[in-house]
């Protein structure tokens, strides 16, 4: 149900852009105003969310330790899974953010009744496709910089060159596009057909998947099928970047407006959704703290010094006679 709703919402968005920028001819709205609005909402929303998280205190030092602590010099510490200082923590975070290490952890040795053999392990697939998804997304994003820079920096050109190194079709096919779509489809199908994931999924899980899929497909449609006028697109995008927005005189295919509208929706949706895991992962206290709270003091800003233990004196008052009788030392004689 949640999946259907999400699908229809995304479909409605496509139709809206199609009709709005095409039939109604609101090219300025879809090409200029909405993208600017989206960028503002994104920046403001993203920053305020991050700031909101960042200003919330971390009262306790609670890393989840995934390996041997640093204790005695002759016991080998596991500095990446149980860091005791900043550099170890930076490596732990880097591995987490860049290689999704925790998801990879799932690859356990598969012992079976009839001897060791490799079995199907869903979580490993999840790791692989999640990695494919995020990296191809990043690559595609970086490639798009060529539309927002003039002259296009060398690294971006290099990136484009390697991404299309297989030289398939005209215009040449980017491998990242393919990988991206395959990965989204995997993530989607997993949500639908994996019973347990399906059970926990809600609309805000399906909606971004459909939205991103629609963005990918509309982008590919522009490039490979509609073959939009790239010069005109760049005129528009450069206009946006230089704050002198214009709708180019040469017509741009309507699919471009659909694409840019969906991207705008994604930008606006981003700060209010689970997609904020992009920022959250850096701030997660179980990962970004070293396990050092036995070595040095971690300060809790709202620690209440008024909370005192039931004092020894009160304890002794309670049991003094019995203590004396049992021969236990007491501070105050009876």
């Amino acid at each position: 149900m949640a999946a259907f709703y999400s699908f229809f919402v995304v479909l409605a968005l496509v139709v809206l852009a199609w009709a709005g920028a095409g039939e109604a001819g609101w090219k300025g709205l879809f090409g200029i105003y909405i993208p600017y609005l989206a960028l503002l909402v994104f920046l403001f929303g993203f920053l305020s969310k991050i700031l909101n998280w960042a200003k919330t205190p971390v009262p306790f030092c609670i890393p989840t330790t995934g390996g041997q602590q640093k204790s005695l010099p002759w016991i080998k510490n596991n500095p990446w899974d149980n860091p005791y200082n900043t550099s170890g923590t930076v490596i732990r975070m880097a591995l987490e953010v860049l290689t999704f290490r925790s998801l990879f952890r799932n690859t356990s040795v598969q012992l079976q009744q009839d001897g060791p053999k490799v079995g199907y392990n869903s979580a490993k697939w999840l790791w692989l496709f999640a990695l494919m998804f995020h990296y191809s997304f990043l690559l595609i994003l970086l490639r798009h910089l060529r539309l927002f820079t003039n002259p296009v920096p060398m690294p971006i050109l290099k990136l484009e060159f390697f991404d299309s190194i297989l030289q398939i079709g005209v215009p040449v096919l980017y491998q990242s596009d393919m990988i991206f779509v395959v990965a989204i489809l995997f993530l989607f199908l997993r949500r639908v057909f994996d019973g347990k994931v399906n059970y926990i999924s809600i609309m805000s899980d399906y909606f971004p998947l459909f939205l991103i899929l629609a963005i990918a497909l509309s982008g590919m449609w522009m490039r490979y099928i509609a073959k939009v006028d790239v010069i005109a697109v760049k005129e528009l995008t450069m206009g946006l970047v230089t704050l002198h927005p214009v709708i180019p005189k040469d017509p741009i295919d309507i699919s471009f407006y659909v694409h840019i509208f969906l991207v705008s929706v994604l930008f606006m949706y981003f700060p209010f959704s689970k997609l904020m895991h992009m920022g959250g992962v850096f701030l997660s206290p179980t990962r970004n703290m070293p396990n050092f709270s036995r070595r040095q003091m971690w300060v809790n800003p709202w620690n209440d010094p008024a909370i005192k233990p039931h004092s020894y004196a009160a304890y002794e008052d309670d049991f003094r006679e019995k203590m004396i009788e049992a021969g236990l030392p007491v501070d105050k004689k009876a």
Binding site: P57, L103, L126, I200, K274
Partner: peptide, 17 residues
Amino acid sequence: KYRSFKIFMDVCVRCGA
């Protein structure tokens, strides 16, 4: 009071791992 709580409420993507 707890950043952990706030973040854990916000960022779960329900990947099922």
